[in-house]
């Protein structure tokens, strides 16, 4: 009785088992059954792109585990050069000191540009005066030791209201880039402002304070443009607001900047990391605009794909 039942059950299950077996085989042939880890950390500005890539990549390759952390560009490079991560998100090019730190551990970072960002200066929507500022005014406001505390100190016809400043912390690539482009010297900034590595904290801060001013990546501005106003930047040829068009054609200057991922060649030897980087470049044109950034020209991605070291 028991044996009969068992036979019957097995017979009934046989087609299912066969199908499962075949399915598995085909799957392997298609994706080479990728598995293992891809560890990413770094810039919170690049995070939305890497998060989207990680999500889609894991849907396509369920065996691979991708982690994306938010430590800031500088914090990300520290982990990257210590060998803790495979890929580092960066909103500025790597510094010579960081290349040295990497070299000390035998790591040669490979730079891959992935998108354009327009670093956006934001104001509270109730602020109807500072709709456009010159680079010089921004520099006077943000330079180290700046004594500008009230809006009227920037332009006499602006109201005599206190300026509350928000910005990224010193570990952030956005901070490095802004100080370089506006103040003229990297990392030179006044320090009496509310600093946070989390761009959303800055969004909430500027939103809650009528006299406030802050700066961060374009994607975070675009997500919250109903709650914040952008400040147009005048670098000598008129006021330009950040937008996908002005960032792409470079008229939003000097705050348009490329964003990167850095990969170590040893990590590229791992099939899952290599597949992830390829996926990143193949899908950048569709996913980068979806999360609020401006994609590079298509041939830039192909160039990077071609520049990957040959498979081992």
């Amino acid at each position: 009785m028991y044996a009969k039942n068992l036979t019957r059950t097995l017979l009934a299950l046989a087609p299912l088992l066969l199908a499962a077996g075949c399915g598995g085989g085909e799957g392997e042939a298609d994706t080479m059954a990728l598995s293992g880890m891809v560890a990413i950390d770094g810039s919170s500005t690049v995070f939305p792109i890497s998060e989207a890539m990680a999500e889609e990549f894991q849907i396509a390759n369920p065996g691979v585990r991708v982690t994306v952390g938010i430590s800031g560009t500088g914090g990300g490079f520290k982990k990257f050069c210590a060998g803790e991560t495979d890929i580092s998100d960066a909103s500025r090019p790597i510094k010579p000191s960081e290349i040295e730190a990497c070299a000390a551990n035998g790591i040669e970072p490979m730079e891959i540009p992935v998108a354009w960002d327009g670093l956006t200066v934001v104001r509270n929507p109730s602020n109807d005066w500072a709709v456009c500022m010159t680079v010089d005014e921004l520099a006077r406001l943000w330079q180290p030791g700046s004594t500008v505390q009230r809006w009227s100190q920037i332009r006499p016809d602006w109201p005599d209201e206190e300026i509350v400043l928000y910005g990224p912390d010193t570990d952030s690539g956005t901070f490095d880039y802004f100080t370089e482009a506006i103040v003229g010297q990297e990392d030179a900034s006044r320090d009496d402002y509310t600093a946070s590595a989390d761009d959303n904290v800055l969004v909430v801060g500027v939103e809650g304070d009528a006299g406030s001013l802050g700066y961060f990546g374009f994607a975070y501005y675009e997500e919250s443009s109903d709650r914040l106003g952008a400040v147009a930047v005048d670098s000598g040829s008129g006021c330009v607001l950040p937008s996908r068009e002005t960032i792409e054609d470079g008229t939003y200057s000097p705050l348009s900047r490329p964003m990167f991922i850095y990969v170590k060649p040893e990590a590229l030897a791992k099939p899952q990391v290599r597949a992830f980087v390829k996926f990143y470049l193949d899908n950048a044109a569709t996913l980068v605009p979806e999360v609020g950034y401006v994609p590079l020209a298509a041939d830039r991605y192909e160039e990077s794909l071609g520049g990957l070291p040959p498979e081992m």
């Binding site: 995070f47 998060e51 990680a54 999500e55 894991q58 585990r65 994306v68 952390g69 938010i70």
Partner: peptide, 9 residues
């Protein structure tokens, strides 16, 4: 301890 990460597994 650094657990603020996007993890989908």
């Amino acid at each position: 301890i650094g657990a603020l990460t996007f993890i989908a597994f």
